[in-house]
C-alpha cells in the first residue's frame, strides 16, 4: 500500500521549513504594531504552515496534531478574545477604548491593546483559514467516495 502524503524529499524538507514558517508567522504577529503585518497576515502565514503539513504528510497525519474540534474551538476563542479586549475598553468608559499604557513608540511593548488584538485576530484568522482548508479538503467528490474510507 502506498504511504500517505508526498515523497521522502518533500517530507524531509517540510519538517525543516514548517517550523521556520511558523516562527516567521509568530514574528509578524508580535511585531504587527510597529512593522507592516499584524494579526491577519501572521494568521495566514501560520495557517499556511499547517496546510503545508497537510499537503506533505496527508490529511490524517496533520489532523492528529490539530483536529477539527480543536480548530473550531481556537477560532471561537480568538473571536471571544477580541470581543473581550473590546469590552475591556468599557472599564475606561468607552467601547474599544485602548486603556493599557501606550509605551514608547517603536518598542515591542507599546501601543496598549493593539498587540493583544493582533494575537486574537491571529488565532481567529489562522484557525479559520485552516478550518476552511480542512473543510474543503474533507469534502470528497462522489467518485472518490466509493474507494475512500468515507
Amino acid at each position: 500500500m502506498k504511504e500517505a502524503g508526498m515523497s521522502l524529499i518533500v517530507k524531509r524538507i517540510t519538517k525543516i521549513t514548517v517550523s521556520l514558517i511558523f516562527l516567521y508567522g509568530v514574528y509578524i504577529v508580535l511585531h504587527g504594531h510597529i512593522t507592516p503585518g499584524g494579526g491577519f497576515a501572521g494568521g495566514v502565514i501560520i495557517a499556511l504552515s499547517f496546510i503545508h503539513l497537510v499537503l506533505a504528510f496527508g490529511k490524517e497525519a496533520a489532523l492528529k496534531r490539530l483536529n477539527e474540534t480543536a480548530v473550531s474551538a481556537i477560532e471561537s476563542l480568538g473571536g471571544l478574545l477580541f470581543w473581550g479586549i473590546a469590552l475591556l475598553g468599557l472599564l475606561g468608559g468607552v467601547f474599544f477604548l485602548n486603556i493599557l499604557p501606550k509605551g514608547r513608540i517603536f518598542h515591542l511593548f507599546s501601543s496598549g491593546t493593539i498587540v493583544l488584538c493582533n494575537i486574537a485576530i491571529f488565532l481567529k484568522v489562522g484557525a479559520g483559514l485552516f478550518a476552511i482548508f480542512i473543510a474543503l479538503a474533507a469534502m470528497r467528490m462522489p467518485a472518490e467516495k466509493k474507494e475512500g474510507k468515507k
Binding site: 474540534t69 473550531s72 474551538a73 471561537s76 476563542l77 473571536g79 471571544l80 470581543w83 473590546a86 467601547f95
Partner: peptide, 21 residues
C-alpha cells in the same frame, strides 16, 4: 449603543465553545 452589536456577537463566538461543553 454598541450593546446591540456586543450581545449577539459575543453570543456567536460563545456558542461553538459552549455547545461542546
Amino acid at each position: 449603543l454598541p450593546i446591540f452589536v456586543i450581545i449577539p456577537l459575543g453570543c456567536a463566538f460563545l456558542i461553538p465553545i459552549a455547545s461542546k461543553w
